[in-house]
């Protein structure tokens, strides 16, 4: 094996030291030009970070479609009742459907109102199209939640006031109940419901 002479090693070492020192001097010059400073050393005693979070009102309907499928209506004045309540099954071959779930995704408490297609437009005037607030995760304080069955109207009605924005309890349910009168014609019926949120 060919040996590298000592002189060559010394030259390489000197070049390496010169490159290192000039690099160091160059860096120090670029960051301030003062050799008494150490790079990365803060020149001011206190760093301040300002962050302002704006208020946001936002809601998500995590389940927005109520689909009861199809089934037969029974005769008589009482009608056939289908609903999204957890405590009841459906008559005939109507399918169970989950209630509408309203979730507060903002950082302020909100009031929730509901309005929708009136029953005479949706079905007929002998039928009923009703809603009722239900606790769900419990985001709406019990005293502020309308839990009685209320007829759907084009005018907005309060379902919940002070729906909290805290993630642990920020949603509640709205059950839908439809009382199908026996004189309804055989066809598919559809209705729209608007859920409106406004800051408390």
């Amino acid at each position: 094996m060919r040996q590298v002479p000592d002189r060559m090693v010394t030259i390489v070492l000197i070049i390496a030291i010169i490159v290192a020192i000039s690099g160091f001097v160059n860096v120090v010059n670029k960051v301030g030009g003062d050799f008494s400073l150490i790079t990365g050393f803060a020149t001011s005693g206190t760093g301040i970070v300002n962050v302002t979070v704006d208020a946001t009102a936002a809601i998500t309907l995590t389940n927005s479609t109520v689909e009861f499928g199809n089934g037969a209506v029974t005769g008589g004045a009482v009608g056939t009742i289908v609903n999204t309540s957890e405590w009841a099954g459906q008559p005939s071959t109507f399918a169970n459907s989950a209630p509408i779930t309203v979730q507060n995704d903002g950082n302020v408490d909100v009031n929730i109102t509901i309005n929708g297609t009136p029953v005479a437009t949706f079905l007929n005037s002998n039928s009923q199209f009703q809603w009722a607030g239900a606790t769900g995760e419990g985001g709406c304080p019990a005293a502020n939640l309308t839990t009685t069955l209320t007829e759907m109207a084009a005018a907005a009605a309060y379902v919940c006031t002070n729906l909290t924005s805290l993630d642990s309890a920020d949603h509640f349910n709205i059950n839908i109940q439809v009382n199908l009168s026996s004189d309804l014609l055989a066809q598919t019926y559809t209705a729209d419901v608007e859920i409106v949120a406004a800051q408390v």
Binding site: A57, A58, I59, T60, L61, S64, T65, V66, E67, F68, S97, I100, V102, G116, I174, I176, V178, T190, A191, D192, V193, E194, I195, V196, A197, A198
Partner: peptide, 8 residues
């Protein structure tokens, strides 16, 4: 079916 829409 019955479809709900959100508004703010």
């Amino acid at each position: 079916g019955i479809t709900a829409f959100p508004s703010i």
